[in-house]
Every structure is written in C-alpha cells, then in structure tokens.
C-alpha cells in the first residue's frame, strides 16, 4: 500500500516535469528563418533613396504576379542574374520588387546605375531582419508571389531556364 503511494507520487512527479518542459518548449525560443512560409509576411520598410516607408500590403496589393528579389551590391551572383531581371522587367505581367540586403547605400546606387534598374520598388533591409522574415537562405534569392501567396521560391541566382519557368507561370 505504502509502496503504491510512493509509486504514484513518482509517476505524478515525472508527469509534472513533462508538462513543464512541454510548456517550456512552446515558449518558442529562436529567431531562425521559417523554412516554408506560404503567404507573404507583413512588414514595413524604407524605400531605397527615398525617406518614406511602405507597408507590405501596399506593395503586393494588385492581382498581379510579383517577383521579390533579394540582392546586394557585394553579391557576385546578383550581378550575373541582373541582366535576366532587366529582361524580365520588360514583361508587363510581372512587377519586380527588390529587397536590398545588408548593403552600403552608395554601392547599391552605383550597382543600379551601372547595370540598370529592373525593380519597380526597392525596399531596404539594412540589418537583414526582413530577409529573415521571408525565410530567406541568403542572397540572391527570389520569391514568385501571386495574390499575397508565395508561389515558388528560388534559392540562388536565377538562370535562363528558371526565367522561362517564371514566364510560364505568368502567361
């Protein structure tokens, strides 16, 4: 009899520990990129070379395809994919939004002046937190967006084949 009480006390104790640890887990802990965001995150951001800030809802508001391209002037692959983006920007069915990632503004400006500007808007992400909200792995990375949903993400630089794929989507 006495043993049984002790046993159940021990079991209750461990159950208690379990509950506490379980609750502790749900007190989520880390600031890591979410890998699979289906709808786009809400954020507000400064616009490149302008003083004003915009909300994400004001940018992606049309029933239209968008391509969010995360880039930086220090990123060499961005330079490679840039002509493709310029090419794509001529397509009327898609709007390309740039997200300038952890960059020096002067360098970014030079980059745009030198290679052309495919972006309808360039958002600023000085500390890299917005890219984290998007769940981005790094630069360059692009998100194809329709109706506030991420249709497809492209990790790494875009190439001709992928551009064709995007064109296929927006047809």
């Amino acid at each position: 009899m006495r043993n049984r009480i002790i046993y159940s006390l021990i079991v209750i104790f461990f159950l208690f520990v379990f509950v506490i640890l379980y609750k502790g887990l749900s007190n989520s802990n880390l600031y890591t990129p979410k890998a699979n965001i289906k709808s786009i995150p809400e954020f507000s951001s400064e616009i490149f070379l302008k003083k004003n800030t915009v909300n994400s809802s004001d940018i992606f508001n049309k029933k239209n395809y968008y391509l969010l391209n995360i880039w930086a002037s220090w990123c060499l692959p961005c330079r490679d994919e840039h002509p493709l983006l310029i090419n794509l920007s001529k397509n009327q069915k898609i709007e390309i939004i740039g997200l300038n990632y952890k960059d020096n503004l002067n360098n970014a400006n030079k980059f745009i002046n030198e290679l052309g500007n495919p972006y309808s808007t360039i958002l600023l992400d000085r500390d890299g937190t917005k890219a984290i909200e998007w769940g981005a792995f790094g630069v360059p990375e692009s998100f194809l967006i329709y109706d506030n949903k991420i249709v497809k993400r492209y990790i790494g630089p875009l190439n001709l084949k992928l551009i064709d794929e995007i064109k296929n989507y927006i047809k």
Binding site: L21, N27, N29, L30, T32
Partner: peptide, 20 residues
C-alpha cells in the same frame, strides 16, 4: 533550444517535442 545558453546554436523547437 529551450535553454538560454552561450553555446546554443540556432535550432528548431519542434524537434524538441519528439525527443521530449
């Protein structure tokens, strides 16, 4: 990642549930 430790690396809390 339930602990705040100086040695913790970024990791996924969902995995913790399984181990728990």
């Amino acid at each position: 990642g339930i602990l705040n430790s100086v040695h913790t690396f970024a990791n996924d809390p969902e995995r913790g549930l399984f181990i728990l």
